[in-house]
Amino acid sequence: MNRVLTLADVGVTYGRGATAFAALQGINLDIASGEMTLLLGPSGSGKTSLLQVMGCLLRASCGSVQLFGQALARDVGAEAMAALRLAHIGFVFQHYNLFPTLKAWENVAVALDIKQVPRAQQREQALALLARLGLADRAGHYPSELSGGQKQRVAIARALAGAPRILLADEPTAALDGKTGQGVAAALHELAHREGVAVVVVSHDPRVEPFGDRVLHLEDGRLVDDSRPSRSSA
């Protein structure tokens, strides 16, 4: 397993002066490829902020972030951050964030389009990704015609477009029923193990916990526990 992301003494502070609020403090962390890391903690513990820092969506106020061994400059611009996300990181959101006016395959194809995959290959690749997630027969449907689980799997397929090395998921099972949620968690676990993707999942959902290779606990913006469960359901 390779280290893909390293956070050293990372902190994130919102606001200034008397109204300043430290969302993250002194985070030291390595994320490796080929495993699924769960990020747990109560509301307001800093899970989302940490996910945003790992996802190059938010600059750390202090400390250093290394992506594939390369340190991110403190003053890295928004376009450069976007380019890093595009090259290395896929996102899965709690509410899917699919484009409602596009069909399932088109949602995936847009991600490929942003990555400048040749147009002639976009449909083929999008259909292949959907097929991998068991959605071959739903490719031509709009999001409004899909179930919650199907939408989330389309979102995962979209996140995998262009083969990112890191997949960050924010409460991916929160809007899904029990069985569907487990199916999505299993799919993410499989991605980590079969394809060597570094998967980080923020979740409150106990159904997801058995799939985690590693569990991080956050409280009040600090990493209070970093453990590897003795058994994984993988």
């Binding site: 928004a78 890093l84 964030n97 991600a111």
Partner: peptide
Amino acid sequence: LPEYATLRAMGAPNRY
């Protein structure tokens, strides 16, 4: 706007 934010989060450059 949420869709534009999603595109941006996915790494789409501003010009996209």
